[in-house]
């Protein structure tokens, strides 16, 4: 894949100045996101909460596809598992919703790791097939009768039934919507930081080596099987936490919220944001949250077709997504400045 240069620069570990353009951009973005709920309306805040949740899920998918070079058309399934874990723990066991996040992540990690084991033997297209099957079967798996007392079958689980909102800790003066947003934001920032560090670590380098040339990686002593399953598990963990957050934000889980369409949406976000470029998750998520509204306005009922055409356009014109365009733009500006 042509994205190898994205993180190659980080691996060279040259001493950098403390204040870089990149850090300034991140800081501004963070301040802007924290300030957002104090300047906008409830529904918009909810939409941006959803955006952040999708961004986390796409981040997880990006770890798998962008960093490790494996495909998944079934990340909606891990999202569902995370959402259900949180819903069940909060509703049936009375656990504090914040404590359910690590559990949801852990369960998804194990689930992803286990699904990754057979996936080890599957290359490219076969892996896509297996995860495709997982995504399509997931709504029915959730309806299976032996687990119906937990999952609520077709009806699903209503979290924090009506009167109950996620409580704001320490008596902070926020309304529940704002708090959910800020909570999601902090979890998201933490996970993004975590993902960056994983990618920059030994583990991340091993994963990228497998993506770029599995045979060379193996002969360099990289345990291909271990790192591939690990990538699957980690990716599921991120996506699972996103699912858990969605259960908190939407307060409702049902099998039909986790159809194949969800997996498609995540894939769209990944491709639009840029495969292999972690901050692209935010751009991809913005696309999948706001563009459908926009597309509905142009023509009702054709938003799926619009999505499809846009995907094809991205593949033709900007195969590296927004990340690729951004890098090309920055490179051009730099060259312009240098030539003066």
């Amino acid at each position: 894949m042509a994205t190898s240069e994205t993180y190659a620069a980080g691996a060279a570990a040259a001493p950098k100045p403390f204040i870089t353009a990149e850090r300034v951009v991140y800081l501004l973005l963070f301040v802007g996101l924290v300030a957002l709920p104090f300047f906008s309306k409830g529904f918009f805040v909810f939409q941006v909460t959803k955006l952040l949740i999708y961004a986390i899920a796409i981040l997880g998918l990006n770890l798998l596809t962008g960093i490790n070079g494996q495909f998944s058309l079934g990340h909606g399934a891990f999202y569902a598992v995370g959402a259900y874990t949180t819903a069940i723990m909060v509703e049936m066991m009375g656990v504090n919703y914040m404590l359910t996040l690590p559990v949801a992540g852990l369960i998804c990690f194990v689930f992803g790791f286990l699904f990754g084991l057979p996936a080890l033997r599957l290359d490219g297209i076969y892996l896509a097939l297996a995860t495709f099957a997982l995504a399509i079967a997931m709504p029915q798996l959730l309806k299976l009768s032996p687990i119906e007392h937990l999952t609520g079958g077709v009806q699903g689980v209503i979290v924090f039934s009506e009167t109950f909102d996620p409580d704001v800790p320490f008596g902070l003066p926020f309304d529940p919507g704002t708090w959910t947003y800020l909570f999601t934001l902090f979890v998201g920032v933490f996970l993004f930081w975590l993902a960056r560090n994983i990618v920059a670590s030994r583990t991340g380098r091993a994963m990228m080596a497998i993506r770029d040339n599995p045979i060379a990686a193996r002969s360099m002593g990289v345990n291909v099987a271990l790192y591939k399953t690990l990538a699957f598990g980690l990716s599921a963990l991120f996506t699972g936490i996103a699912g858990a957050l969605s259960a908190i934000a939407v307060k409702f889980v049902a099998p039909d919220s986790f159809t194949f369409a969800l997996s498609i949406v995540l894939l769209v976000g990944l491709v639009v944001g840029g495969v292999g470029w972690l901050p692209g998750a935010l751009i991809g998520a913005t696309f999948i949250v706001f563009v459908p509204n926009f597309a509905e306005e142009i023509s009702k009922g054709l938003s799926g077709a619009f999505f499809g055409f846009f995907l094809i356009l991205v593949i033709y014109l900007a195969p590296q997504g927004a990340g690729g365009l951004l890098r090309a733009g920055v490179g051009r500006v730099k060259r312009l400045l240098a030539s003066r």
Binding site: L267, I315, P319
Partner: peptide, 30 residues
């Protein structure tokens, strides 16, 4: 749709299939 990206990486192909999926599904509904 497919000819122009014959030699693109596997991910591009899968994405194109998914795009076709979305287009056909939505067009039929429409």
């Amino acid at each position: 749709v497919f000819k122009p990206i014959e030699n693109a990486p596997v991910l591009s192909h899968i994405v194109i299939f998914i795009a076709l999926f979305a287009i056909f599904n939505s067009a039929m509904g429409f």
